[in-house]
Amino acid sequence: MPDLRAPGGSAAPYDALLLLSFGGPEGPEDVVPFLENVTRGRGIPRERLVEVGQHYFLFGGVSPINEQNRELLAVLRKDFAEHGLDLPVYWGNRNWAPHLVDAMREMAGDGVRRVAVLTTSAYASYSGCRQYRENLADALAVLEAEGAPRMRVDKLRHYYNHPGFVEPMVDNTLAALAELPEPVRNHAHLVFTTHSIPTTAADGSGPVEGHGKGGAYVPQHLEVAARIAAGVTEATGVEHRRWELVYQSRSGAPHIPWLEPDICDHLEALHRAGAAGAVMVPIGFVSDHMEVKYDLDTEAMARAAELGLPVTRAGTVGADPRFAAAVRDLVLERAAVERGEEVERRCAVGSMLPSHDVCPRGCCPNPRANRPAAAGTD
């Protein structure tokens, strides 16, 4: 059986990798149009978007996500070249330039016919998986209407439990712990954060690998949190360190149940309980984009300062070379599957199996409409 990870491994049948992300404004004039793209079809008034846009205006109207994706692109291309993987890497966004449909037009013009797709979301959920698949279906429909040659897209599996995602987060957490005063460091709680979503969306978020049931969003995050906490324990020797999974960035109507507790509420609870300090670990995000910079670095840090609670924040995976190597691993793994070859090793850590390659029917349903989605069974 060939070693898929050996230098020069084959990406056939793929002609390209597409990095598919959320997008963000790159200047004050972009902010409201960007938010209109994000919320299109939801009937949110413009004045509310201007209010939400203040988060971006605090940072000059620029979201860091696009620059961080450029860094990730550079690291991916470098890793591929160093390991003899001849596969061009393109980039498209859901909500802002470079737009997904433009990236796919470029690929079609370059002769690309089969695409592996990496989304900047590691977990199962509607907004983190199926919505991207709907965006891909929309873009393919536009290209078909324009008479472009037929293109096939395959979304790579969820990578939340790949060691190339988990190991950098262990190191980032250790670095954040080291920023706390020494008397606090060994007693600080690890507070793992991710995006809050409606509880109905969490319940419908796909099967839990190896357990045969739905609602994967929360268990997947708990798995990552447990792996990182174990890695921190091994590195520090501090046993029985407290850790929790909490949520941030809620944006829905108050009468709809969303996942809780909120990060700021949790920091208040830690303070009341006499906690020595905490490290916020944003496991739900691939890069330090606006929901990390504002919701954690600005809002949550301000609340911690008001409470007098020592708090630091761990970095996200970002453009860590180990994450780039994990992406290469995922591409080669899926390519072998598509060639009909047996894959001896699918990298994953913890108690959950590697995620499915193809989303099953009914996985992470659209809460607003039944729309076609690419790269799945429906």
Score class of each variant (00 low, 15 high):
268 E>W: 00
58 L>R: 15
160 Y>F: 15
199 T>A: 15
91 W>M: 08
248 Q>I: 02
159 Y>L: 09
103 A>R: 08
36 E>G: 14
26 E>T: 11
228 I>K: 11
341 E>C: 04
360 P>Y: 01
140 L>H: 01
47 E>T: 10
8 G>H: 09
234 E>W: 12
366 N>A: 08
241 R>P: 13
57 F>I: 09
48 R>L: 03
373 A>Q: 06
332 L>A: 12
171 D>F: 02
357 D>M: 09
267 L>G: 10
98 P>G: 02
320 D>W: 03
287 S>D: 08
250 R>D: 05
74 A>I: 03
334 R>G: 01
263 I>M: 07
254 P>D: 07
206 G>L: 04
251 S>H: 03
237 G>D: 00
298 T>H: 13
230 A>T: 12
110 D>Q: 15
324 A>E: 07
147 G>E: 08
230 A>R: 14
166 V>L: 13
258 W>H: 06
310 P>K: 07
99 H>C: 00
25 P>T: 03
219 P>L: 10
230 A>S: 15
61 G>Q: 02
313 R>E: 03
284 G>A: 05
50 V>S: 07
193 T>H: 04
36 E>N: 08
110 D>V: 03
304 A>P: 09
283 I>S: 04
353 L>D: 14
151 M>S: 07
216 A>D: 11
254 P>Y: 06
124 A>D: 04
168 P>H: 14
18 L>P: 05
208 V>N: 07
73 L>T: 12
57 F>M: 15
355 S>H: 12
82 E>P: 01
350 G>I: 13
132 Y>H: 05
257 P>K: 07
145 A>H: 07
94 R>P: 05
131 Q>L: 13
253 A>Q: 12
350 G>A: 12
364 C>H: 05
32 V>R: 05
72 L>A: 08
28 P>M: 12
95 N>H: 15
367 P>I: 02
83 H>L: 08
149 P>D: 10
184 V>L: 08
1 M>K: 09
232 V>D: 10
181 P>R: 04
67 E>I: 00
80 F>I: 03
267 L>H: 09
228 I>S: 04
94 R>G: 01
287 S>L: 00
128 G>N: 01
274 G>K: 06
6 A>V: 01
323 F>L: 12
104 M>G: 01
260 E>P: 02
6 A>G: 07
233 T>L: 02
257 P>L: 04
367 P>N: 10
18 L>S: 09
148 A>L: 01
35 L>A: 10
222 L>H: 13
154 D>A: 15
265 D>W: 00
78 K>E: 15
99 H>V: 00
26 E>D: 14
114 R>N: 15
327 V>F: 13
119 T>V: 15
